[in-house]
Structures are given as C-alpha cells and as structure tokens.
C-alpha cells in the first residue's frame, strides 16, 4: 500500500487533490489529518496550509489491475473495433484480456501491436502510481498459443542439436520469448541454453552437453 502526503489551502481541497492524483474515490482512501490549516488573521498573517496523509485502502495488486484496465480502455476507445477488456489480478502481475472480433489487428506481426499496448499501458500506469507494474496484455489467447509454438520450436531445435552435436541459435527474440525457450529446455540435461547478443538482437543459443562417457572417450583419444 502506498502512503502519500498532500498539502492544500483546506482539508477539503487536499482530499480532492488526493482523489485526483490517485484516481480513487474518497471511500477507498484512508485519510489522516496532520494539520488542519488556518487562514490566519485577515488571511494574511499566520496562514497555515492544511496537510493530510493518505493511504490507499485497495491492495496494490487489485489497484494495478484496475488502473491498467482504465488506461487500456482509454487507448482502445480510439480504435474502431468492438472490444471489451477483462482485468484480473494474478500472482505478481495483472492480466488484461481484450475480447474482440478476432481480426488480428490488435496482435500485429509477431505480437508487435499487443506488445506496444502492453509497454505503453505499463509505462503510463507506473508513472501514475509511482510504482512499477507488471502486466500481460492478451487477446484471443495469443500469449498461450505463442508460448506453445515457441516451446515446440525449442524442442525441435533441441533434438537437432542432440543429433548433430552442434550448437544452434534461434532468431532474435524478446526477453519474454527467450524465457519460454530457456524454460522449455531447462529439464533436458543433454542441452544447455544461453542468451547472447545486444538489445533487440538478443537470441538464444542451444548447446549440446557432452555426456561423461563421450567426454572420457574424447580424452582417451587426446592422450
């Protein structure tokens, strides 16, 4: 939960300012009055500003999901498609699912549009709440389908590496996608994975792990 302080001419104004900045109705705020403020004599001498301390009552996860949905709704309002957003606070992140007509416009090439929406919503919400938020924007189950195909690709590449005993490299991938490849091959003890490259060109390399037997054989040969 976050706590913030507001200072205004009157308590009423301070509460209003708090509601505006936190984008929450008054009932969802816990308000503690630090100083009532006074207008002083004739409003000139000894005027003191009112000060309040505000704690949000909504747990951060729910708040983040709610806020994220608001921002996403605001963006999607300008796109001429029938759309409804479902928000769900999940463990460690908010899941936002856009239900639409399945045109693929919201996904874009390799999820480019979906990723741009996700990036902007998370940036805007982080700015507004002052806390970093983690969220997943999805539509038509795209994230799960993509994870499935990336996983399948990882296994295919893995089989090839095992057969040829040569390392292979994936195409450039986002951090999210690389994570899926690493996880897909994590339990395969014949393979090892590593990310390499800079920025948007980062890829995953899949290496064969030499089995002890083969390693011993190779050593023998060397001797």
């Amino acid at each position: 939960m976050s706590t913030l302080e507001f200072e205004e001419k009157s308590i009423e104004e301070a509460i209003e300012a708090a509601c505006r900045q936190l984008k929450l109705p008054r009932e969802k705020l816990e308000i503690e009055i630090i100083s009532k403020g006074s207008s002083g004599i004739f409003g000139i001498v000894g005027a003191r500003r009112a000060k309040i301390r505000v704690t949000t009552k909504v747990p951060p996860a729910g708040l983040a999901a709610e806020k994220s949905k608001e921002v996403l709704d605001e963006i999607l309002k300008h796109i001429d498609l029938p759309m409804v957003v479902e928000a769900e606070a999940r463990e460690g992140y908010s899941y936002l699912n856009i239900i639409s007509n399945g045109s693929g416009l919201l996904i874009g090439k390799r999820g480019k549009t979906l990723n741009a929406l996700q990036f902007l919503v998370s940036k805007i919400v982080s700015r507004q709440t002052g806390e970093s938020v983690s969220l997943l924007v999805d539509t038509e189950n795209y994230r799960a389908k993509r994870e499935e195909s990336l996983s399948a690709l990882a296994h295919q590449l893995g089989e090839k590496v095992k057969k040829t005993h040569r390392s292979l490299t994936t195409g450039p991938m986002s951090a999210q996608d690389r994570r899926v490849v690493h996880l897909a091959l994590k339990d395969d003890h014949d393979l090892r994975t590593k990310s390499k490259g800079e920025g948007s060109l980062r890829r995953v390399i899949i290496y064969p792990v030499r089995k002890p037997k083969e390693a011993a054989k190779a050593e023998e040969k060397a001797e």
Binding site: A116, L117, K123
Partner: peptide, 11 residues
C-alpha cells in the same frame, strides 16, 4: 517508446 506509440497509432 516512440515506436510503441507509432505501432498503436497505426492500429
């Protein structure tokens, strides 16, 4: 950031 904005505007 600007490219993300452009992508969403394009949509």
């Amino acid at each position: 950031t600007i490219n993300a904005i452009r992508t969403v505007l394009q949509a």
